[in-house]
Amino acid sequence: MASTVVTADIPPRGGVRSLYARLRGGDEIAYLITIICAVTIFLVVALLVWQLWANSQPTVKTFGWHFILSSRWDPNAGVFGALPFIYGTCVTSFLALLIAIPLGVAAAVFLAEMAPPKLSGLLTFLIELLAAVPSVIYGLLGIFILVPVIRNYIVPPLVGTFGFLPIFKGSFYGVSFLSAGLVLAVMVVPFIISVSREILLAVPTDQREAALALGATKWETTWDVVIPNALTGIIGSVFLALARALGETMAVTMVIGNTPTISASLLSPGYSIAAVIANEFAEASGDLYVSSLILLGLVLFGLTIVINGIARILILTTTQRGG
């Protein structure tokens, strides 16, 4: 019994205390609960990957790489090829970036370099609100405003002028790669702006002052000094936007036309990975059908994870160098 008195007097140095002593203060309980929650998140993600993997095995075993390379998607015949969806996802995302990058980076330059701080704060606030608008609302506006407008006012002159290009060939029904790309562009622009703006603001003021002192104009300072400094981070913001665009579901589903075709023409209706999952999952019958859709989900998951990872690395390297 004496020994217990002695150990109680000597403060334990990382050694063993009785369970009761550890739990008495509530400290260890709180620690345990919080760490369990942290581990839960890890388990959820592990389970997510495992579920996608395990549930898509029937399709992987049946088709193998042919799944990604084949362009025939025929649920009735039990043949599943994902190429039209992968193609549609890539085309719409790149089209969106093509429109969103110049607009977004220019706006970020304005907000970070030109606008007075108060105005910049207000405008950034409004742009962040734009990012909070649910995607189904963008889809709603896409169907009822964007599609009629481009069908009646934008595409006819476009075809009239550039109709000889393969990307503007064919008849136009309104729902198309082009409409999906435009809606996506509006949706990802806020991400490019808010991340690029922060990257630009992280460029040290010394750099700007040095360039101005050497006689550079405001524009030369921005173009030759600030932007090169922030370039990696801006590219990072673009990758972030790309990851968003790839995974975007509702707005694309509502305007892309939902036809599994591969066509060089932007005016033709198409399909995307996320859209086919959204449209067909609830009604999919048969193991192979469901597992093909889940495999598409896995492909999408893989794509976004890789691109998000690249974005994170790029953004991290610039902000750390700048700060």
Partner: peptide
């Protein structure tokens, strides 16, 4: 180390497209 792993996992989860989360909830 553990905190790094958790932070990384959280970022990963944040980047998962919502439709994929739907598939997960369906499977679970």
């Amino acid at each position: 180390v553990f905190a790094f792993v958790i932070r990384y996992t959280v970022d990963l989860l944040n980047g998962v497209p919502s439709i994929v989360i739907g598939i997960f909830a369906y499977a679970m």
